[in-house]
């Protein structure tokens, strides 16, 4: 199982077991972050930093069983 946490306003695009902002997926055949996100109606232009196991990843990052993914929105300001 791969757990994806959606942060900030993106949280509304996922819900598992009543937990907002969470997606659970299976790691079949080297699935990529993009392939999992394609299964939910999340607008990819608003996807910013992708964190895979605590490190910076991308839509192309291939995932394995047990990976943890955090998706942040694009940010501006500070």
């Amino acid at each position: 199982m791969i757990i994806i946490e959606l942060r900030g306003p993106l949280a509304r695009y996922g819900c598992e077991h009543g937990e907002k902002g969470r997606i659970e997926a299976k790691a079949d055949n080297g699935v990529t972050v993009r392939q999992i996100l394609n299964q939910v109606p999340i607008p990819l232009q608003h996807v910013g930093l992708i964190v895979v196991n605590g490190k910076k990843g991308s839509l192309q990052t291939m995932l394995s069983e047990g990976d943890s993914v955090v998706i942040f929105p694009v940010v501006a300001g500070g």
Partner: peptide, 21 residues
């Protein structure tokens, strides 16, 4: 979704972005 993080989280969201990077 590009601006509303300011509402859902505000700037504390940046802590994890900076930690990761």
């Amino acid at each position: 979704d590009t601006n509303l993080w300011a509402y859902t989280d505000g700037t504390p969201m940046i802590v994890e972005l900076s930690q990761t990077t």
